[in-house]
Simulated scan of single mutants.
Amino acid sequence: MSSEPRRTLTAAVVQASAPLFDTQAALSRAEALVREAVGERGAQVVVLPEAFLGGYPKGLDFGITVGSRTPAGRELFRRYHAAAIDVPGPEVDALADLTRELGCHAVVGAVERQRGTLYCVALHFGPDGYLGLRRKLMPTAAERYLWGQGDGSTLPVIDTSTARIGAAICWENYMPLFRTAMYAKGVDLWCAPTVDDRDAWQATMRHIALEGRCFVLGACQYMRRDALPSDLHPVQGDAPDTVLIGGGSVIVSPLGEVLAGPLRDGEGILTAELDLDDLTRARFDFDATGHYARPDVFTLHVDESAHAGGVGG
């Protein structure tokens, strides 16, 4: 038996939401949850869900029908735009100060505002502060009338010297070529901020862990109707305890074993101690962009330049 010390890292995924259209409340919740994960759970890496800052307006239609918009829908978008954050900006500065103070890494889902366009993003922070962002490449379905498309200029994988951290936002996890591009960057901790609460999502998280031979940290929102202002009426109903997003946060090993979760029926923080040597053990017989890649048959071109309308941050 080897006498080498184990290389471990404690990871946390947060399942929670913040009141919609209240940016300061969202920031305060994010700070408190990161502090709890690090201070009480010993986490070194913390992942918060998709659109935690800025909000995910589940069940709202913004007055959209094919070929028309309404004045009320335009006003609702104005409120949503006002609740988004600037990058760089005061919310980013506050979270950067926090991770510097705590000496941790964090991935925080947010809605970024750039002039008239909003982007769904994952913000990366570490002991050195703000490290960069990922812009969601393809908003899903009705998200397309709220969020612009990212481009290849925001595909960072952060090397912490202990592990390499990357993020895929919600249904980006279903994009095979995106996954391949991230695997080629050597991602070890695959962070998946999401609002997908379906049981089928668990299969996706386990598949990516197996395919990428990486740890998957899936953080989903848990949100009830009472997180929305009272003047809004989601399609799910107006009872305050109506669940709009049901969670399902999970942590998975590089061989697809569930280490924590899935968490249902409420908010919470999941943690797991990750044995980083499991990354090498798992890649022994499969490495998607290494010894199993067949580059003589397959190639992938990734345009990582910034494009007008999807300008890199």
Rank of each mutant, 00 (worst) to 15 (best):
V216T: 11
R206L: 04
G166N: 09
D199C: 00
G261H: 06
D265V: 00
R224C: 11
G186T: 06
W201H: 14
K185I: 02
L232F: 04
G248M: 08
P262D: 01
V216I: 02
W190E: 04
Q236W: 01
E257N: 09
L146Q: 07
C214E: 01
E211H: 11
G148N: 06
L232C: 06
D226F: 02
F178E: 09
V250Y: 08
L232M: 06
A168Q: 13
A168P: 00
P240F: 00
R198M: 08
D231C: 02
V252F: 04
R198C: 05
C220I: 10
A163M: 01
E143I: 00
W201L: 10
D199E: 15
L177M: 11
P193Y: 01
L155H: 06
A184W: 06
N173Q: 13
E211Y: 12
E267S: 12
D151N: 12
A203Y: 12
D226G: 04
G237L: 06
V216P: 00
F178M: 14
G186V: 05
G148D: 07
G261F: 06
G256K: 10
E257M: 05
A192G: 04
R224S: 07
P229Q: 05
P193H: 02
R164K: 13
I158L: 12
W201R: 15
M223F: 00
Q149Y: 10
I158V: 15
G218W: 01
R206Q: 15
